[in-house]
Amino acid sequence: MSPNLFVLSAGTELWRCHETAYACTEFNPKPAHSFFGGNRFDATSEDRYPYLYAAVAPTTTLAEVMLRDMEFTGPEGRRQVPWALAATRSLSKVRVTEDLVLVRLIEEEDLAAVFQTSWLLETDEYAQTRAWAREIRRQVPDAQGLVWQSRRHRPHPALVLFGDRCGEEPLKAVPGQVHNLGTFEGAGEANQLLAPLRAVIIPPGMRA
């Protein structure tokens, strides 16, 4: 395996859609089940590490979290994000504090370099994609994360960082750049970003 690498430079600003109960710079320490649930490149009990998902564009991180398996419905053909999904989350901007080396999975050449095809980014068989992430980590011990083209907001990149391979504080929150999606104001900010994707968060009491 000879992966193509990408350096995420210190100072780069990223966006996260995360549980409001946790800090926007906080890595998830809980491994996903080896065979069920979870996300594409989560840690598992076979390879435990804190992990954190982010994106360069705010719309990308919203789409990655909110629009999974979401269909266009109603007379206007919009995707209606359940309030229960949005209300517990925030949209926050963070800044990278150190250069981070990521395995690049953007183009077909990048995927071929890790003996894969677009299947790795398209399939919903997350148990298998997590297993492949473990293999990439095993063969590329210097990799601090992965970057790929978002399935839900092409051609923009999404990424995951491996907390066990980053410094003590690889990310810092950008002051004043947090939107609580559990408020009308925060949901309104998110809806402006989601509108071109024909998606909307509808808080209680607000008409579709």
Rank of each mutant, 00 (worst) to 15 (best):
T25D: 13
Q192E: 06
F72L: 14
Y22F: 11
Q128S: 14
L105C: 12
A87W: 01
G37C: 08
A43D: 13
F115D: 14
E107Q: 12
G11R: 09
L91Q: 07
K30Y: 10
Q177E: 15
L14T: 13
A158Q: 11
G167W: 07
S90E: 11
R78V: 12
F115L: 12
H153K: 02
T117Q: 11
E108Y: 09
L67S: 06
T44F: 00
V96M: 09
T129D: 04
W15V: 12
H156A: 11
D42R: 04
A63H: 05
A113Y: 14
T44V: 05
V140A: 13
S92P: 02
T25Y: 05
A127C: 07
G38E: 02
E98K: 15
Q80P: 00
V147T: 13
K93E: 08
E13R: 15
L111C: 09
L8F: 11
R137M: 02
A63L: 05
P203L: 03
F184R: 03
A133S: 09
G77L: 04
R89E: 01
W132A: 13
M66K: 01
A112K: 15
R152K: 11
G188D: 02
M1I: 10
N191K: 03
G182M: 02
L8G: 10
D110N: 13
L120P: 05
L146V: 06
W119K: 03
P82W: 01
L102H: 01
M66D: 01
R207W: 04
S150T: 06
Q128H: 09
N191P: 03
M66P: 01
L8C: 09
W132M: 15
G205Q: 07
G176I: 02
V103T: 07
W83T: 05
L121T: 15
A173N: 07
P175G: 05
R151P: 03
T60K: 09
D47I: 01
L159Q: 08
D99M: 13
P155F: 05
L67I: 05
T97W: 05
E13F: 00
D110Y: 12
D110L: 10
V103R: 03
Q116R: 13
Q149H: 07
Y51H: 14
P82S: 09
Y49I: 00
V200M: 01
F184N: 03
V178N: 00
A158K: 07
L193E: 06
F41K: 03
H179M: 06
A133P: 01
A63R: 07
E64D: 12
L8P: 14
